[in-house]
Amino acid sequence: MAEIVIKNVAKRFGSFTALHSIDLTIADQEFMVLLGASGCGKTTLLRIIAGLETPSQGEVWIGGRRVDHLPPRERGIAMVFQNYAVFPHLTVFENIAFGLRMKKLPQAEVDARVNRTAELMHIEQLLRRYSGQLSGGQRQRVAVARALAMEPDVILMDEPLSNLDALLRLEMRAELKGVLANSKTTTIYVTHDQVEAMSLADRISVMNGGKIVQAASPVEVYRNPAARFVGSFIGNPPMNFLPANRSAAGQWSVAGLDVPGPAAGDALEFAIRPEDLTVAAEGFAATARVVEPLGAHTLVTAEVGGQMFRAVLDSDLKVSPGDELRLSPKADRIRWFNRETGLAAG
């Protein structure tokens, strides 16, 4: 059992505040992804959980034990680093065995665990090699194997795939998902890649400016962003936003179109994902500016009410730059945000 509870954790570096009072609970065996742009505090939070960084305030609990004043070695965690941190002076075998030797496990047990994890990560043929003789992908496998061999309650991963090339990243992602699902550990995984986050996570914590903006399942984060930031950060292309003004009770005027919306509030923002737009007789008056045929569909960047507006349309549709279109939003996919706070409304 390794539930992780983070209570009111903050981190300040001098006058810079990297984390503002974070509260987060990660369930036992959950796969939690911390997602955000660089500088949002996600790595700092991970390092605080690992014990590589001391929080300025707050508590960290792992498996019902308060650990924020313990060194990393006493927290029952294992970590996979961004640059893998495979020890260059040791063989792959000794790298994987490193933590087990620190635990003073008997040699037979060390051999068994190293061989088992090496097999799991498909590196059993590399055990005699040194780090310098390995490719980036192989080093990555060694780093994961080294963490798994510890049979930890918690595995922490700091952008583990960011140094791999695109194809290898795809392959490793699928493999990681399988391996970690079987390992029964609680996993915290830091990334700035939203696709990686969506594909791996049970839950995603979207971070911005040292705060967790939303912590929810991938689909929830995508469909119901808790804040404008989440909608603009997740999705490629991201959500479209247009200012909305109240025209009547529950009626909002958006770029010349009357849209039913929340009853409360007076300055809202209308939001819709590009794939939730269709060409119809009724809708936003749009002028196509850039047309990008992407095979499966066509991405049209248009102008609506003087603002940039993207739509993912059927590739059979013939659109040229300069064409006038009517873009109709799917009613059940419309989201509203408060224009001042940026939080979801209605």
Binding site: A50, R73, M79, A85, H89, F98, G99, M102
Partner: peptide, 27 residues
């Protein structure tokens, strides 16, 4: 010597001195 190597050793059960001895010193 990347700090990451020392940190890796800390997460794998070393204290500061052990990490220095086993990872930094040989390098």
């Amino acid at each position: 010597i990347p700090l990451e190597l020392e940190e890796a050793a800390w997460t794998l059960g070393c204290n500061r001195w052990q990490a220095f001895q086993r990872v930094v010193l040989p390098l």
